[in-house]
């Protein structure tokens, strides 16, 4: 331990508070978005299932947040011949 620490008070509590405030503002938002991906997956699946028989396990919904662009990626694997009769 540096002897100088005894004299110069390094206040770390304000750092902790500020880091938490920034982090939690972010996390409280992103928790909501995680749910959004799940909701989207369910609802998209329901819409497609009305017209085509698809397997629920073959649908993937990804939500990606970038600094400039955010993307919503929906990947649905069709059963063989599902589109041919249409």
């Amino acid at each position: 331990m540096n002897i100088l620490n005894l004299f110069t008070r390094n206040r770390t509590a304000p750092v902790a508070r500020d880091r938490l405030q920034i982090l939690l503002a972010h996390e409280r938002m992103s928790t909501g978005r995680t749910d959004l991906a799940a909701v989207l997956q369910q609802e998209i699946l329901a819409v497609i299932a009305k017209h085509i028989a698809i397997d629920g396990d073959k649908v993937s919904v990804k939500l990606d947040r970038g600094a400039q662009v955010s993307t919503l990626e929906i990947d649905i694997e069709m059963p063989q011949g599902a589109l041919e009769y249409r």
Binding site: R9, T12, A13
Partner: peptide, 16 residues
């Protein structure tokens, strides 16, 4: 420790 600024104060935690 909270008084010295080494630990978050009660008010800090309550505010967060």
């Amino acid at each position: 420790r909270a008084a010295r600024g080494d630990m978050m104060k009660v008010e800090d935690v309550l505010e967060i």
